[in-house]
Design a protein around this nucleic acid. Structure first.
Lengths: 128, 128
DNA sequence: CTCATTTCTTACTTTTTTGTAAGTACCTAA
DNA sequence: TTAGGTACTTACAAAAAAGTAAGAAATGAG
């Protein structure tokens, strides 16, 4: 939970308000958001797909990050009134404007780190 | 300090190895790195300048973040053998390759958040 | 009525990041 | 000899982020 009155929270707000880069990092940063956005950048996915696809993520984290992305207007959540439930996540139109930014980050990362087998596939799909 | 054996540390490594975007975010993310990179993107600065210019940062944080950027090969540190000491920080050539990425993040951020007076100047200088 | 499936919640613990405050080293100039 | 400027360190405390484990709702199938 966040403590509105902390120096930390104050600093965060201030930086976000005075630096566009910090604002962007705030939206897409964190442990799991890149992994989520990377995937939703390519296609709509349902909750269980994301959960299976992103190795090591817990449901708590997955939901929390999706909610944040949703609240920030980057991702949208579509619920189908079925049982068992089906919920799909995709980029909003705002989220789509982020795509080139995400792609440039992804490309830079893939270019400048030691090549690891696991990335090969990802590196390709990002710019398919 | 980091606990190498934690699930958290393991997950971080794994994601960084499997997602270029996560790798990039890992390098430039965090509370103060955007503010630092934003400035060093434009010009070489000495320690005290950064310290004055980045409102609210503590010396501990400034040094820590600069060290990380240095260890990651993005920023370089030049010490002049003078008294009182003079230390300058600038982007390395690897850091320069990051500039367009940083700029696109900065631009996106400035474009998509409520315009705040403080940003006007920054938004201009970024693409001068 | 009980089970299975999917998409979450909730309460609690551990780990990581950030902040605070004080101190250090170096030389120079007064 | 003492004060001053710059660039840090260090030890400790607070806050935030992430992990763990268990549970809950809704409903159709058997």
């Amino acid at each position: 939970m966040r403590k509105e009155s902390s120096t930390n929270a104050f600093n965060e707000k201030h930086i976000i308000d005075s630096c566009g880069m910090a604002y962007t990092v705030g939206l897409i940063g964190g442990r799991w958001k890149p992994a989520i956005l990377c995937r939703l950048s390519n296609k709509t996915m349902r909750y269980s797909e994301l959960n299976r696809d992103i190795e090591g993520i817990s449901e708590r984290m997955l939901v929390a990050q999706l909610r944040e992305l949703e609240n920030d207007g980057i991702v949208e959540r579509q619920v189908y009134p079925e049982v068992p439930p089906r919920v799909e996540y995709r980029l909003t139109s705002l989220g789509e404007t982020l795509r080139p930014v995400l792609a440039s980050m992804s490309d830079w990362g893939n270019m400048h780190r030691e090549p690891v087998a696991a990335n090969m596939q990802e590196a390709e799909t990002m710019h398919a």
